[in-house]
Simulated assay, not measured.
Amino acid sequence: MIVITAPTGKIGHQVLDRVVTAGRPVRVVARDPAKLPLRVRDRVEVVEGSHGDPKVLDRAFEGADDVFWLLPTDRTAATAHDAYTGFTRPAADALREQGVKRVVGVSALGRGTAWAGRAGHVTASLAMDDLIAGTGVAFRALALPGFMDNVLRQTRAIKEQGAFYDVLPSDRRLPSVATRDIAAVAARLLLDGSWTGQDTVPLLGPEDLSYDDMAAVVSDVLGTTVVYRRMPEQAMREFLTGSGASEGMAQSILDMMTAKEHGLDDGVVRTPQHADDTPTTFRQWCEDTLRPAVLAA
């Protein structure tokens, strides 16, 4: 039995599709089962509720061999550690009690770098990994950079203003990965019952790009000029809190971006295997995903 958490999210739903297609028994934990796609709803066992609830986890993990662990977004948590380790602690107990064999978790790049301990969301994510690993379960932490798919949050700004925004310098090159590639690696691990031990799996995408590089690609794909505009940190803070984030979570995001600017994502050297695992280029992603979204906005 494979258990998938956050099965309606941007990564989780793609993992679910791949695992269901493979024909394995699947159980999902969903707050709102009605959000599950019709094509899979009748092919999976559903445990309704939050995967932060110990009672829900006991039902979900009973008899499970493999778990895909992905946190829900909690912009209102007081701190990132509340959102990550606080939410995950009941799962660690349930993993032990129910004898789950393997966990594939969504995490972040940065372990072993000078910024790992002061990187906001990433620091909390690495602490979450340590909590899961401490149960003794076989564990693969998918260590991720930024997502290409996050650009979709700015679809309307791209269409109406010809611009997208962030707080990083325009020329700072960083890795980025498509969520479909993350889902492919996660599903492959979930379907492979042979691995043991604990390890980190960096997923870097095929290339490092700056926001200026990305703007040039977006402009070319859309056939219109799109530019990147760097926001002052205070403006970003006000945007985040104005859109519902707590002060603590807003600061955590800013801390993470500062750490990325200064080398958080630079600790892993890209190899041909990384490109094989995550082959989607930003141009391909823009053609397949961003362009249709902008046209429909």
Score class of each variant (00 low, 15 high):
M128L: 07
M128A: 13
M128G: 08
D129Y: 03
D130M: 08
D130C: 06
L131M: 02
L131H: 02
I132V: 15
I132C: 05
I132R: 06
A133Y: 05
A133L: 04
T135L: 06
T135H: 10
T135E: 10
G136V: 13
G136F: 14
V137R: 11
A138H: 11
F139G: 01
F139R: 08
F139Q: 07
F139M: 09
R140K: 04
R140Y: 01
R140I: 01
A141G: 01
L142T: 00
L142W: 02
A143S: 12
A143P: 03
A143L: 07
A143V: 04
L144Q: 06
L144P: 05
G146V: 08
G146S: 10
M148H: 13
M148W: 11
D149C: 07
V151W: 06
R153S: 15
T155H: 05
T155A: 06
T155Y: 06
R156T: 14
I158F: 14
K159Y: 08
E160L: 10
E160V: 09
E160H: 11
G162M: 07
G162E: 07
F164A: 04
F164H: 05
Y165P: 00
Y165G: 01
D166L: 08
D166E: 10
V167L: 04
V167P: 04
L168K: 10
L168H: 14
L168P: 11
P169E: 03
P169G: 06
S170V: 15
S170P: 15
S170E: 15
D171L: 08
R173Q: 15
R173C: 11
R173M: 12
L174M: 14
L174Y: 12
L174S: 11
P175C: 10
V177H: 04
A178N: 01
T179M: 06
T179A: 03
R180A: 13
R180T: 15
D181V: 14
D181C: 13
A184Q: 03
A184V: 02
V185Q: 09
A186W: 04
A186Q: 04
A186Y: 05
R188S: 01
L189C: 07
L189H: 12
